[in-house]
Amino acid sequence: MDSLVVLVLCLSCLLLLSLWRQSSGRGKLPPGPTPLPVIGNILQIGIKDISKSLTNLSKVYGPVFTLYFGLKPIVVLHGYEAVKEALIDLGEEFSGRGIFPLAERANRGFGIVFSNGKKWKEIRRFSLMTLRNFGMGKRSIEDRVQEEARCLVEELRKTKASPCDPTFILGCAPCNVICSIIFHKRFDYKDQQFLNLMEKLNENIKILSSPWIQICNNFSPIIDYFPGTHNKLLKNVAFMKSYILEKVKEHQESMDMNNPQDFIDCFLMKMEKEKHNQPSEFTIESLENTAVDLFGAGTETTSTTLRYALLLLLKHPEVTAKVQEEIERVIGRNRSPCMQDRSHMPYTDAVVHEVQRYIDLLPTSLPHAVTCDIKFRNYLIPKGTTILISLTSVLHDNKEFPNPEMFDPHHFLDEGGNFKKSKYFMPFSAGKRICVGEALAGMELFLFLTSILQNFNLKSLVDPKNLDTTPVVNGFASVPPFYQLCFIPV
């Protein structure tokens, strides 16, 4: 009986604490739906499609509103004006990374994606500088992407125009580009180590996009005490870190300090320079996690976009025909596509942009946080508050993009057929937390897609009208449904 009384008292205290925290903070924060004790607004949000729920709530509470995930307040920004004001106009104040408990377990605050403060700034600055020195957006990395595009075309030829699921092959190409940047090595598509790495990356994007992960991140005790797919994700990350550590040891034994070959060499050189400046942010643990982040951000996002792009091109054969006509006119058949071609191919450029806009790969991006107490639109948001960005509300804005739910390359073309930029184009987020590999991803999408369409016609196994382009999961990332196609050599 005594234990029951204690339990009831504990629960009562928890409920009172929950109510007090919510009521004391709500006077400062933007308005929002009334949260339930302990669980907050979790029942009012469709976990399978958070973005749709945010759109519905914005119609009631406006472009800036507050939700509670458990006891934790989260300020939501919906629509271009609110997102721009926060991420661009007040970029420094909104540059923090929001709480992501599962990532905390995986990387302990290291790396480039989930770190904060001085650690994040130094690692991000170093990573950007190193990638630029190796030619991100310049010639040397373009050579690597072109080489991988040629290998991709050869792998597709091996399908002999038979029906195939493109998931694996389209994942190999961007993964190999990242391998060449980090390890100075590309792998054969049949290499077992490479296959294991690909498998872990593919599993992780599916797990991260599941409703279960949303629950884990908002009720963090689940991570330590409950079984579930989150444990598989943590094991996959541990596998990748151990693999990278092996490569780091190989580099330490063979590195030429006067001739760095890749990202690992550059990081080890930085560690050597910083060894007298303790404590340094440049450690082996930081290198492991930064490399894992580059793999995660640079492989599955690009391969998922490529997979979605081919599905949309199957669905819209008239678009595919126009792209192939432009390829034939500008590039021809006797040389590989290059980035200089893009400025002469406005329709193809528009298609690449429209694919990214339409699929809305990361509907709410990753959570941000404010780095200080900030007054925002007459609300006071306390330091450390998590900020949720609705990228969907920007990419699918119906004023900027008429009929935003329709796939239409003319969203990025003017009346004369010239490519038209849009400030609403934010597939990689915006501001200080914009994806480090934005330029690389854009290069890969253009070169891989043009190389495929230069060499193959795409054949659907069903009537294009019957192809479903609805994402199968739409949590962290929008993942396309399973499909097969035939690559018919031109």
Rank of each mutant, 00 (worst) to 15 (best):
residue 2 D to L: 14
residue 3 S to K: 02
residue 3 S to G: 14
residue 3 S to I: 13
residue 4 L to H: 00
residue 5 V to G: 11
residue 6 V to L: 15
residue 7 L to F: 08
residue 8 V to N: 00
residue 9 L to D: 00
residue 9 L to F: 08
residue 10 C to A: 15
residue 10 C to D: 00
residue 15 L to K: 03
residue 21 R to S: 10
residue 22 Q to G: 14
residue 24 S to A: 07
residue 26 R to L: 13
residue 30 P to L: 01
residue 31 P to T: 09
residue 34 T to F: 08
residue 35 P to Y: 04
residue 36 L to N: 05
residue 41 N to V: 00
residue 43 L to G: 13
residue 43 L to M: 13
residue 43 L to K: 06
residue 43 L to W: 09
residue 49 D to T: 05
residue 50 I to H: 09
residue 52 K to P: 13
residue 53 S to A: 14
residue 53 S to D: 13
residue 55 T to G: 08
residue 57 L to S: 04
residue 58 S to G: 07
residue 61 Y to D: 00
residue 62 G to Y: 00
residue 63 P to V: 02
residue 64 V to S: 03
residue 65 F to R: 00
residue 68 Y to H: 09
residue 69 F to G: 06
residue 71 L to A: 13
residue 72 K to A: 04
residue 73 P to L: 01
residue 75 V to M: 04
residue 76 V to H: 02
residue 82 A to R: 02
residue 83 V to Y: 07
residue 84 K to H: 12
residue 84 K to V: 09
residue 88 I to S: 08
residue 91 G to W: 04
residue 93 E to T: 09
residue 93 E to G: 10
residue 98 G to E: 11
residue 101 P to G: 13
residue 103 A to Q: 13
residue 106 A to Q: 15
residue 107 N to L: 08
residue 107 N to M: 07
residue 107 N to Y: 13
residue 108 R to L: 10
residue 112 I to F: 12
residue 113 V to F: 14
residue 113 V to L: 12
residue 114 F to K: 09
residue 117 G to N: 11
residue 118 K to N: 07
residue 119 K to D: 10
residue 119 K to R: 10
residue 120 W to A: 07
residue 122 E to A: 13
residue 124 R to A: 04
residue 125 R to N: 08
residue 125 R to Q: 10
residue 127 S to L: 14
residue 131 L to T: 06
residue 131 L to D: 04
residue 132 R to C: 04
residue 132 R to V: 12
residue 132 R to I: 12
residue 134 F to S: 12
residue 136 M to E: 10
residue 136 M to C: 14
residue 137 G to Y: 08
residue 138 K to A: 11
residue 138 K to P: 12
residue 139 R to E: 07
residue 140 S to L: 06
residue 140 S to D: 09
residue 141 I to T: 04
residue 143 D to V: 10
residue 145 V to N: 00
residue 146 Q to T: 09
residue 146 Q to S: 11
residue 151 C to T: 11
residue 153 V to T: 06
residue 154 E to F: 05
residue 154 E to H: 10
residue 154 E to W: 05
residue 156 L to N: 00
residue 159 T to N: 05
residue 161 A to P: 02
residue 164 C to D: 01
residue 166 P to G: 01
residue 168 F to L: 15
residue 170 L to A: 03
residue 176 N to I: 01
residue 181 I to P: 00
residue 182 I to L: 14
residue 182 I to N: 01
residue 183 F to R: 01
residue 184 H to E: 08
residue 189 Y to F: 05
residue 194 F to E: 00
residue 196 N to T: 13
residue 197 L to H: 01
residue 197 L to W: 04
residue 198 M to Y: 11
residue 198 M to V: 15
residue 198 M to G: 03
residue 198 M to C: 14
residue 201 L to F: 07
residue 205 I to F: 14
residue 205 I to E: 10
residue 206 K to N: 15
residue 212 W to A: 07
residue 212 W to E: 04
residue 213 I to R: 11
residue 216 C to A: 14
residue 216 C to R: 07
residue 218 N to F: 14
residue 220 S to V: 09
residue 228 G to D: 02
residue 229 T to P: 15
residue 232 K to Q: 13
residue 232 K to D: 12
residue 235 K to P: 02
residue 239 F to V: 13
residue 240 M to G: 02
residue 242 S to A: 13
residue 242 S to K: 14
residue 243 Y to D: 02
residue 247 K to H: 10
residue 247 K to N: 07
residue 252 Q to Y: 15
residue 252 Q to C: 10
residue 254 S to E: 09
residue 254 S to R: 11
residue 255 M to P: 14
residue 256 D to I: 15
residue 261 Q to P: 08
residue 265 D to L: 02
residue 267 F to G: 05
residue 271 M to G: 05
residue 271 M to P: 04
residue 275 K to V: 09
residue 276 H to K: 11
residue 280 S to A: 10
residue 281 E to Q: 08
residue 285 E to P: 04
residue 290 T to E: 03
residue 294 L to Y: 04
residue 295 F to S: 01
residue 296 G to H: 15
residue 297 A to V: 10
residue 300 E to C: 13
residue 300 E to F: 14
residue 300 E to S: 14
residue 300 E to I: 11
residue 303 S to P: 04
residue 311 L to D: 00
residue 311 L to G: 01
residue 312 L to I: 06
residue 313 L to E: 00
residue 317 P to V: 06
residue 317 P to S: 07
residue 319 V to R: 03
residue 321 A to Q: 06
residue 323 V to Q: 01
residue 324 Q to L: 04
residue 324 Q to G: 05
residue 326 E to T: 01
residue 327 I to H: 00
residue 329 R to H: 10
residue 331 I to V: 15
residue 332 G to C: 02
residue 333 R to A: 08
residue 334 N to Y: 12
residue 335 R to F: 03
residue 338 C to V: 09
residue 338 C to H: 05
residue 339 M to V: 11
residue 342 R to S: 05
residue 342 R to N: 04
residue 343 S to Y: 13
residue 343 S to A: 11
residue 344 H to M: 08
residue 354 E to L: 00
residue 357 R to Y: 01
residue 357 R to T: 01
residue 357 R to M: 01
residue 359 I to P: 00
residue 361 L to P: 03
residue 362 L to V: 12
residue 366 L to F: 09
residue 368 H to E: 04
residue 370 V to I: 08
residue 370 V to L: 09
residue 371 T to F: 04
residue 379 Y to L: 04
residue 382 P to S: 06
residue 383 K to L: 04
residue 386 T to L: 09
residue 392 T to E: 07
residue 396 H to M: 15
residue 402 P to I: 15
residue 402 P to F: 08
residue 406 M to E: 13
residue 408 D to G: 03
residue 409 P to L: 03
residue 413 L to G: 00
residue 414 D to E: 07
residue 415 E to R: 08
residue 415 E to S: 09
residue 418 N to L: 11
residue 420 K to E: 06
residue 421 K to I: 12
residue 422 S to P: 07
residue 423 K to R: 10
residue 424 Y to G: 06
residue 425 F to C: 04
residue 427 P to N: 08
residue 427 P to T: 07
residue 428 F to I: 06
residue 432 K to F: 12
residue 432 K to S: 15
residue 438 E to Y: 07
residue 439 A to N: 15
residue 440 L to K: 01
residue 440 L to M: 08
residue 444 E to W: 03
residue 444 E to Y: 05
residue 445 L to F: 09
residue 448 F to L: 03
residue 453 L to F: 04
residue 456 F to R: 00
residue 457 N to F: 07
residue 462 V to Y: 08
residue 462 V to Q: 13
residue 463 D to V: 05
residue 463 D to C: 06
residue 464 P to H: 08
residue 469 T to E: 10
residue 470 T to Y: 06
residue 478 S to H: 09
residue 480 P to V: 07
residue 481 P to V: 02
residue 482 F to T: 14
residue 484 Q to V: 03
residue 485 L to G: 02
residue 485 L to C: 14
residue 490 V to F: 10
